[in-house]
Design a protein around this nucleic acid. Structure first.
Length: 722
DNA sequence: TGTCATCCGTTATAGACAGCATGTC
DNA sequence: CTATAACGGATGACA
């Protein structure tokens, strides 16, 4: 089917033609009809087979007819990917905005945008804050809807869609899914046309590798030259033919070890020119302006030989760097944990799945679901570059080969299932429903639950006991009042708005009744909430954590714990945050706590969010604590001692530069006012740009152009500093 | 004596979302 | 009810 035959605005067709899109893939062709007619559609087709294009077209079509769209994605990184895609249509007068936790579109009302891209949590949060434009939506896109299956985040997506459906029954819903067994049930739930297909733009060959030979699912075989290491052999094989390779393993440590090994083999076959470029890139990485860490150094060493590793311990900057250099073709191989399978689109000619099990603390190593393996395999084959993609699963023992063939290659992905029936999910979502007034009576609560995917497969009454428990809990803890129907208390409303687990709110309230007033006590309190996951206790940790635990004060005492280990894990987590605000170097934290620099960032983010919540709750329960709490906030954000707070308020100045200024005698705003740009720019970590920036910000009479230039520069700096 | 290969017991384990400030028609 | 890659120290082989 040709794009020009579609009943769409000719300008859209023109734009698509510019992008080189003239024909639709078969599953797209099948979906586009109902999608443009405004019908609900569920598309279950493999990744990178053009699901999004159908959604884009429906969205644009609707917007051109004065509609408004919400595009829900699971990851912040995907939000910016979609944003970039949709921006291509801005010339049609479509205004696209992004709204995710750490970054909101410049216009806070979001109202003036025609398309708003949000994570599912943000969409939920927008509903909680009663954003009225949600009632005006004409289209809702739910990307990766199979994530409803995720026990942690699935219920949010499910509830958000259910609420949107109730608030705004006329809005068209487009749900995009990976291939799953029961996508038809999703379609049923959403009252949608169901389109399922295995079609891929680049054909995929799947196979098992064992002892030097790949056995493909179609019966063909291919032998691979052995270089002494299974995985490296597979990498060399494809790189020699000009391809790239993506390898999935199940631990972070393995990504680093394997990428090192692969690199040792790769280095012999690299072209001299790319070898030179890699050396440059590697050096550039080491001289980056952000805090040097041993992980960064290791990454830089691996990059030198065209093999990189990728996992959630990397900073965002490092991840982007790895991804970009793989896309450009310079990096030949990435060894990654599953982060990469769920994240942005990063195809390679060959995908190797080395580990088919994952560690579970309760059961040891358990097999990973077929759906996940398919998701990883789906990254094989770059449209427009490769004629076919190869997904190769590794057999380690003689019997594995047959097992893998049968249980993975020839197996259908599993069915997905709602996880809304679980207590924590219900706690959170029942409260928010009551707090926003979406649900006011038992009757309405029932009808709301019955509108979810959960209820489609499970009878309401099977969980009515849990629901009653949850309602009782919410009442007892003073989140809601049961009178004539349900009503949220102020505490309940704040909890819902702050987007924390009600259980967290209970913990924080309790902490606010405590006597201590040390930074550590507050940090521990937030680490004691279910919203902040604790660090693992490693064998060597017990001694120092116990000692530390004994010497600190608490708002929540360890007498309250059944499980001492639990408490110690919280103490360890609080200790990480403490080290951060005491300006311990990133690398030292990395080593002491066994985390990556990216993990530090994540925990700091969570701490900021929870500390903010605690500050807000202190206004209700104990105003005397508000001062200490709000003083702690910027310290957490920037990772600095009190004395640097003045300096860190400048754009472009973080913990490292602030410390540099301070230790050279520039301790306050006043000191900087008196300082000379030349002197400043001679300090370590501070160049002429930064020095001028500081002066500019001190200036007082900053013109708009200068302000803009400054903003631009500081954005540049932020990017580098990541 | 130094270097490398091999063996063996020990160790640690994937991922990542959310709040808020502020002004204008 | 369920595992295993990677590391580090110890030992052994060889120049």
């Amino acid at each position: 089917m040709k794009v020009s035959d579609l009943e769409i605005d000719p300008r859209i067709a023109e734009l698509l033609a510019e992008e080189g899109i003239k024909k639709l893939y078969p599953p797209q062709a099948e979906a586009i009809g109902p999608a443009l007619e405004g019908k609900n559609v569920v598309m279950a087709i493999p990744t990178a087979s053009g699901k999004s294009l159908v959604a884009y077209l429906a969205v644009i079509q609707s917007v051109l007819r004065k509609g408004k769209a919400l595009y829900i994605v699971p990851l912040r990184a995907l939000a910016s990917e979609k944003y970039e895609d949709l921006k291509a249509f801005e010339s049609l007068g479509i205004r696209v905005g992004v709204s995710v936790g750490d970054y909101d579109a410049p216009d806070p009302t979001l109202e003036k945008f025609d398309v708003i891209i949000a994570t599912s949590e943000k969409a939920d949060s927008l509903l909680r804050h009663r954003a009225h434009w949600l009632k005006e939506l004409s289209v809702v896109v739910a990307d990766e809807i199979h994530l409803i299956n995720d026990p942690g985040r699935g219920p949010t997506l499910e509830v958000t869609l259910s609420k949107l459906k109730q608030i705004n029954p006329r809005a068209q819903i487009l749900a995009l899914s990976a291939t799953i067994k029961n996508s038809n049930e999703i379609a049923e739930w959403l009252n949608a046309d169901h389109i399922a297909s295995d079609w891929r733009p680049v054909p995929l060959k799947e196979g098992v590798f064992y002892e030097g030979e790949i056995s493909f699912e179609d019966g063909t075989k291919k032998s691979v030259a052995d270089c002494g290491d299974d995985v490296s052999s597979l990498v060399l094989d494809v790189v020699k033919e000009g391809g790239q390779c993506l390898i999935f393993v199940n631990t972070r440590r393995s990504t680093e070890a394997l990428s090192g090994r692969v690199g040792m083999h790769l280095k012999d076959i690299l072209e001299p020119t790319s070898s030179k470029e890699l050396a440059m890139l590697s050096r550039k990485l080491q001289s980056r302006q952000d805090e040097p860490t041993s992980l960064g150094a290791r990454l830089s060493r691996r990059i030198r030989y065209a093999a990189a590793f990728h996992h959630a311990g990397l900073t965002n900057g490092q991840r982007k760097m790895v991804e970009a250099n793989f896309k450009s073709g310079l990096v030949k191989c990435i060894v990654a944990t599953p982060t990469l399978a769920a994240g942005i689109n990063l195809p390679a000619r060959r995908v190797v799945v080395r580990d088919l099990t994952r560690y579970d603390p309760n059961y040891g190593n358990v097999p990973i679901p077929v759906m996940e393996v398919k998701q990883m395999s789906g990254r094989a084959g770059r449209p427009q570059f490769d004629t076919e993609g190869e997904a190769i699963l590794l057999a380690k023992k003689p019997g594995d080969s047959a097992f893998i063939m049968e249980n993975y290659l020839l197996s259908e992905p599993e069915s997905i299932d709602s996880k809304l029936g679980q207590r924590p999910a219900l706690r959170m979502h029942i409260l928010s429903s009551i707090a926003t007034g979406h649900v006011r009576t038992e009757e309405e609560l029932k009808s709301f639950i019955e509108s979810t995917f959960f209820a489609q497969k499970t009878d309401f009454w099977t969980i009515s006991d849990i629901i009653n428990d949850v309602l009782e809990f919410l009442t007892e803890e003073d989140f809601i009042e049961a009178g004539e129907g349900y009503k949220a208390t102020f505490f309940g409303k704040r909890t819902s708005d702050l987007y924390i687990d009600p259980l967290s709110a209970v913990t924080l309230r309790k902490a606010l009744g405590g006597k201590s007033d040390t930074a550590f006590a507050y940090l521990h309190a937030i680490c004691a909430t279910p919203d902040v996951p604790t660090l693992y206790l490693r064998r060597g940790d017990y001694e120092w954590v116990e000692e530390l635990a004994a010497n600190e004060e608490y708002l929540i005492d360890y007498d309250d714990y059944d499980d001492y280990e639990f408490f110690l894990a919280e103490v360890k987590t609080a200790a990480l945050l403490q080290s951060w605000i005491e300006e311990e170097s990133a690398d030292a934290i990395t080593k002491r706590f066994g985390v990556g620099p990216g993990d530090i960032r994540r925990w700091v983010d969570m701490a900021e969010w929870l500390m903010h919540s605690m500050t807000e709750l202190s206004r209700i329960f104990d105003k005397s604590k508000s001062r200490t709490l709000s003083a702690l906030m910027p310290r957490i954000r920037y990772g600095v001692k009190k004395e640097l707070l003045d300096l860190v308020s400048f754009r472009g100045i973080g913990r490292a530069r602030a410390r540099s200024l301070f230790s050279h005698g520039y301790k306050t705003r006043e000191d900087l006012k008196k300082a000379d740009v030349k002197d400043l720019s001679r300090l370590p970590l501070i160049g002429t740009t930064i020095a001028r920036n500081i002066k500019l910000q001190l200036g007082g009479s900053v013109t708009i152009e200068e302000e803009e230039k400054m903003g631009g520069q500081s954005i540049l700096h932020d990017f580098q500093a990541e």
